[in-house]
Design a protein around this nucleic acid. Structure first.
Length: 370
DNA sequence: GACACGTGGAG
DNA sequence: TCTCCAAGTGT
């Protein structure tokens, strides 16, 4: 019969063993990523650059590693340190972020850089509270930077960790309620050394072994301690609430092309959907699928011709845009609009949905120069 | 706590 | 085609 003290000690032993096995696995199987300092370099005393850790963590929020890689390299190329980014034009940052999505991240990134650049030595805070106070840095990112950049213990809990831990301990409580329990487990496992490697090891395990579908349990260093493996259905975890169905909206978009190939654009409001990004003029995007999408609401009268319909899926709705095109001969840009030269189009802060619209009207227009 | 907020890839 | 989702944050 185990006393409460014994059971706590037992739990700690299990957690410690898991951490040790995970780190041994990580030493051999860790992913090589552009923003990462591998264990071999850490052992030689090389420390990660907090700027790169921060930049990568912001980019990786709800975004795949493969999508982030080229953007990370481009940002580092243009702005090698936080002072450089702080001195950049916000518009240039938005242009460089275009296509990566969740554009409030880019605006917060710029404000955060400016804030950090004013701190002594332009150094990032080395603790969760200090980091958490910066725009764009929430509980996950604060813990990630604290552990990865500064090697200080912090409970890094992202989607990977949630999946790994709910499976390890067969936690059937639905997310996000399960987070309290998950955090308790992670904090116990943290007692081991190498906080930064531990955090990245958990994420690598979740990304390569303990995957959402068809996890490779036979290759998992933790299978002997995994409760879900015993139950035979690790895919059951984590339990998540059902998603709301995605509504559909509709509108019209107007691509005005000048004789020299320039396209009429305008800037979206700073906040909200695609905030601060560039777009072609469009009607409102109404919930009414049968709503009027005619040429009435074009930015100016012209010989508008239908150029097809594009469909774009956002997180919380699907958008159908009827695309119209017109040749605009010597038209002055309406208030709030501007002409973008053909050669500049590819470099504008155009979100993917708008590139899709322009491509429907002028094939290849947004790809020149790439 | 609920919802807004992008995108492209995988199965 | 369609669903799920990938290193979440802000309001």
């Amino acid at each position: 019969m185990a006393s409460p003290t014994d059971s706590r000690k037992l739990a700690t032993d299990v957690d410690g063993r898991i951490a040790t096995l995970l780190l041994e696995w990580y030493d051999v199987h860790h992913r090589e990523l552009p923003w990462r300092t591998p264990p071999s370099e850490l052992k030689r005393g090389i420390r990660p650059d907090p700027y790169r850790v921060w930049l990568s963590e912001i980019m990786l929020q709800q975004t795949t590693v493969e999508a982030v890689k080229p953007y990370f390299r481009a940002f580092l190329d243009k702005w090698p340190d936080v002072a450089a980014l702080a001195a950049a034009e916000t518009e240039d940052v938005m242009k460089a972020w275009a296509g990566l999505g969740y554009y409030s991240r880019a605006r917060n990134l710029k404000v955060c850089a400016e804030t950090v650049a004013r701190l002594p030595g332009s150094r990032f805070p080395d603790n969760e509270d200090g980091l958490r106070a910066l725009p764009g840095i929430g509980p996950y990112t604060a813990a990630a930077i604290t552990s990865i950049a500064f090697n200080r213990p912090a409970a890094v809990i992202d989607g990977n960790v949630e999946r790994v831990v709910t499976r390890l301990f067969s936690i059937a409580t639905p997310l996000p309620q399960a987070k309290v329990e998950i955090r308790a487990h992670v904090e116990r496992m943290l007692a081991a050394a190498r906080p930064g490697d531990f955090a990245q090891a958990m994420m690598d395990l979740g990304a390569t072994i303990c995957t959402p579908r068809r996890p490779r349990c036979m290759l998992c260093p933790l299978r002997a301690d995994c409760s879900a493996v015993v139950s035979g259905d690790p895919e059951f975890y984590p339990v998540k609430p059902a998603k709301a169905e995605r509504p559909r909206r509709r509108g019209a978009a107007f691509v005005a092309v000048r004789s020299d190939g320039a396209v009429l654009l305008r800037k979206r409001p700073g906040k909200g959907l695609l905030g601060g990004m560039t777009e072609v003029p469009t009607t409102d995007w109404t919930a009414r699928v049968d709503g009027a999408t005619g040429v009435d609401s074009a930015p100016f009268a012209a010989n508008w011709q239908r150029a097809g319909t594009i469909t774009h899926v956002f997180t919380h709705f699907t958008l159908d845009l009827d695309v119209f095109r017109a040749e605009a001969t010597s038209v002055q840009a309406p208030d709030g609009h501007f002409w973008s030269a053909a050669a500049d189009l590819a470099g504008e802060a155009l979100p993917s949905v708008m590139k899709k619209v322009i491509e429907a009207a002028i094939p290849g227009a947004t790809k020149r120069g790439l």
